[in-house]
């Protein structure tokens, strides 16, 4: 795999082995860093920015007197970029930080960590191939996710091509917010597409994600027209998109525009995840004030919405654990 063709670098913020909810079987999921959307409920804020970032978990810090490894290696230490509070590294002054990652490399306690890593295709492949026996037994494979895969489509294309050399099942999880011409750059090497419909009302879509939904819906339609096996997900976020009206509109879109050419429509519960990660990046959690409803309430809500969808003939299910028919 040393040929120059695969020597493109990607920025990857996580490679999770043994995921089972994003595509069939046991899978390895590769998370691409960088995303054009800023969903209020995003639980992977470390995937938003397209470059490497340093995160701070102050509670893990041993104390700068006892350790101090980070201050010793930081090229900008003198500028006070690493802010110490109560003897522990508490935050980073982001404007002064070059994200060189030396502090995280030196930190023995993982109080400082780098989000994102530059990787060649063969670096990623080495990890992917480690579990191929599991893919074969379970009908699993590889899922590319993010962030947004299309922001690094050239790298993704090389990676998918490489996967196909090993006959691996591939799955693409994407917002599909991309230039429509790019779809066909990846689709020949993809076995299953997973995408979201976050809201049918474009202005609300913009309010919740930072962009309107027109391009996304157009690309979903194009994906269906290309006969790509497709799963549509609806993250059901109370007070945002869980109205029966929105679900009806979504179902109508799926029936009339997509002609129901979808494998499954999955309605997923919203969970307040990732708050620690926001904090580590010095970001505010956009849903900080949102009050999580009780399990019984959201379970009932999702079940109702699934029934609404089904009444249109849409293959809707709750959660990700139902087998594809």
């Amino acid at each position: 795999m040393k040929n120059s063709d695969v020597q493109i670098e990607g920025i990857i913020f996580n490679i999770q082995r043994y995921t089972i909810h994003d595509g069939p079987g046991i899978r390895t999921e590769v998370f691409f860093k960088g995303c054009p959307l800023h969903c209020k409920w995003c639980s992977n804020p470390e995937g938003i920015k397209g470059e490497i970032e340093v995160g701070v978990y102050s509670n893990r810090c041993i104390g700068v007197e006892k350790c101090g490894c980070c201050l010793a290696v930081c090229p900008q230490a003198k500028t006070g970029v690493l802010i110490v509070e109560d003897h522990k590294v508490a935050k980073i002054e982001r404007e002064k930080c070059s994200n060189c990652g030396k502090c995280a490399e030196a930190c023995p306690a993982n109080a400082l960590i780098t989000w994102g890593k530059r990787m060649f295709v063969h670096d990623v492949m080495k990890i992917i191939l480690a579990d191929r026996e599991f893919y074969r037994k379970s009908g699993g494979g590889v899922t590319l996710s993010g962030g947004e895969v299309f922001l690094q489509w050239k790298f993704a294309r090389k990676l998918l091509l490489e996967c196909k050399k090993y006959y691996l099942n591939t799955c693409l999880e994407s917002s599909l917010y991309c230039n429509s011409n790019l779809l066909e750059q990846l689709f020949p090497y993809v076995d299953l597409v997973i995408t979201d419909i976050k809201h049918m009302d474009s202005s609300l879509h913009k309010e919740f994600t930072g962009i309107g939904n027109e391009l996304i819906l157009r690309n979903i339609k194009r994906t269906a027209e290309l006969n790509m096996p497709l799963i549509i997900r609806i993250p059901v976020v109370p007070e945002h998109n869980n109205s029966v009206k929105n679900i009806r509109n979504t179902a109508e879109f799926i029936m009339t525009e997509l002609h129901n050419r979808v494998k499954q429509v999955q309605l997923l519960p919203y969970r307040q995840l990732g708050t620690e990660k926001y904090k580590s990046l010095g970001m505010d959690y956009p849903m900080e004030t949102f009050r999580q409803v009780e399990r019984s309430v959201w379970e009932e809500n999702i079940r109702t919405l699934v029934e609404v969808m089904k009444s249109y003939g849409v293959p809707a299910v709750a959660g990700t654990t139902s087998k594809l028919k």
């Binding site: 089972i20 909810h21 069939p24 079987g25 046991i26 026996e133 599991f134 037994k137 379970s138 699993g140 959660g319 990700t320 654990t321 139902s322 087998k323």
Partner: peptide, 17 residues
Amino acid sequence: CLTGETGRDNLIHLIDT
């Protein structure tokens, strides 16, 4: 981790592998 048909089947496949 083990709910649903997929949870069950993946546990079987884990043991098998």
